[in-house]
Design a protein around this nucleic acid. Sequence first.
DNA 1: ATTAAGTAAAACCATTTGGTTTCATTTAAA
DNA 2: TTTAAATGAAACCAAATGGTTTTACTTAAT
Lengths: 133, 133
Amino acid sequence: MAAPRQEHDVFQAIADPTRRKILRLLVEKELPISEITDQFPMSRTAIAKHLRVLSEAQLVSGKKIGREKHYRLRPESLAELQEWLSYFEQFWNNKLTMLKYRVEHQEDKNSIVVKPTDLGKAKTNKSREGSEF
Amino acid sequence: MAAPRQEHDVFQAIADPTRRKILRLLVEKELPISEITDQFPMSRTAIAKHLRVLSEAQLVSGKKIGREKHYRLRPESLAELQEWLSYFEQFWNNKLTMLKYRVEHQEDKNSIVVKPTDLGKAKTNKSREGSEF
DNA sequence: ATTAAGTAAAACCATTTGGTTTCATTTAAA
DNA sequence: TTTAAATGAAACCAAATGGTTTTACTTAAT
């Protein structure tokens, strides 16, 4: 890994399977490095470096809590990926197909039921509230 | 680059900016290696290797036409990426926010206007026609 | 006040990656 | 039928990547 001297982008950051798994772990809750390390067959130092790459890509952020450093998921940066992908969807499936996919997969707890009225509202609401999209 | 002996996944394939640009080029139309190379400041051989990586990730396919080899975009493999991303969206923006984003960005020629009726239909239609999602 | 836990940082290493140059092969064109 | 265009493939190279071990620094706990 060494010192990632140049700025890491999101694409680079998610290219590594270990880092993707780390992101998955952090979805659940904040975790200190040691606990993250427990989930992998490599050294704590290696994980720390992966966390650094993720951090530089703004996919996670860490704060010190006592003598531990807790890392937290920062999924907002995935917007870049989403945006990149959406470009290809234009020429691939049409948006409606994507919408269908989304809606069909809304069986999880955090999902929101999308009603026609909501969509209509969204369609005219140009302001994207919240950070960056 | 060397010989990519182990199977390349999509995440790896799109990690490189040159490869992402190649994909963008191929959105427009099929292109022979030489024409692709014209768009970059590197050798034809380098581009050929990038195409090999993309090919192994099933993001492009090539067919010989005369003495040229034409490459074509295979966006279906991006589904894997989309699926991975959608997992995080559950905990990030809710689906509605994503829908809003989509709909707000439908000012291109190929887009489909999503009407509330369409969404309603999609929501109950479980069959995902066409290749793979 | 010591000791142990948790991390940070540096030095090191093998493999992969992204590029090059060179040479061979296939196919279109003069 | 030569010749030139387009590609394929191999050998090579520097830098990046993913890992390790070692040493040092903070902070909690005894």
